[in-house]
Design a protein around this nucleic acid. Structure first.
Lengths: 108, 108
DNA sequence: GTACTATATGAATATATAGGAATATAGTTA
DNA sequence: TAACTATATTCCTATATATTCATATAGTAC
């Protein structure tokens, strides 16, 4: 039986890639089709599918097939809260350090 | 300049190892000396030091030298809240799946 | 100074993960 | 049925990370 710590580590590992964080950010607004996700990320369908698979295997997102398309959504809103919490911690740290930052060129 | 998403990914990656999660759990109770941490984990001093270095490099913990010893502590309580939040999500998921679990043999 | 203690670091190896290109699978449409 | 579409998977290579053992560094005590 896997320990809780081990499962927690798997979840953090799944969330520890910029592309997968970008995917979670996209899903904040609600379910999205794969066909909407990978063009928005500017990535290959194949690579995107693998990242979705990592998040899905950890139960962070779930997909349902609707005809040819697959729509993904967050399984538990608290994963988004966790993500936001870390962003907030870092923003404060950076603020304290007097730094500026941005994501994909967009100012925050 | 590193993006926020990239920094978030680094923090998650730092937290994505069972040993480092165990270290954070130990530090919940307050600062601890390295000499207390690695025996409690049952790990080599060298390996423990490297894991501490990963957490330190991400600003999750900080150490201060006191004579020969180095004492580590959490830099921001919210990192612990993030850790607890994920544990809670997983506990609920496992409960819904009707599973039992434990950490190092201790029932929860 | 030497000897000792606690911690960090380096080099080598092993394992894990990511990315790219091609292919497989499942569903649709004609 | 064949052709098409959307997504997932496989294989291969490159890169990143973890572990082990040995050594370096910094502080203490004599």
């Amino acid at each position: 039986m896997k320990t809780v710590d081990y499962r927690v580590s798997e979840v953090f590992r799944a969330m520890s890639h910029p592309t997968r964080i970008a995917i979670l950010d996209m899903l904040k607004g609600g379910p999205l089709c794969v066909c909407q996700i990978y063009p928005a990320l500017g990535l290959d369908q194949s690579i995107t599918s693998k990242h979705l698979g990592v998040l899905r295997s950890q139960g962070i997102i779930r997909g349902r097939k609707e005809g040819l398309k697959v729509t993904y959504e967050i399984t538990d809103e608290r994963y988004l809260q966790v993500l936001e919490a870390v962003k907030e911690i870092l923003k404060r740290q950076w603020y304290l350090e007097g730094k500026m930052w941005n994501d994909s060129g967009k100012d925050r």
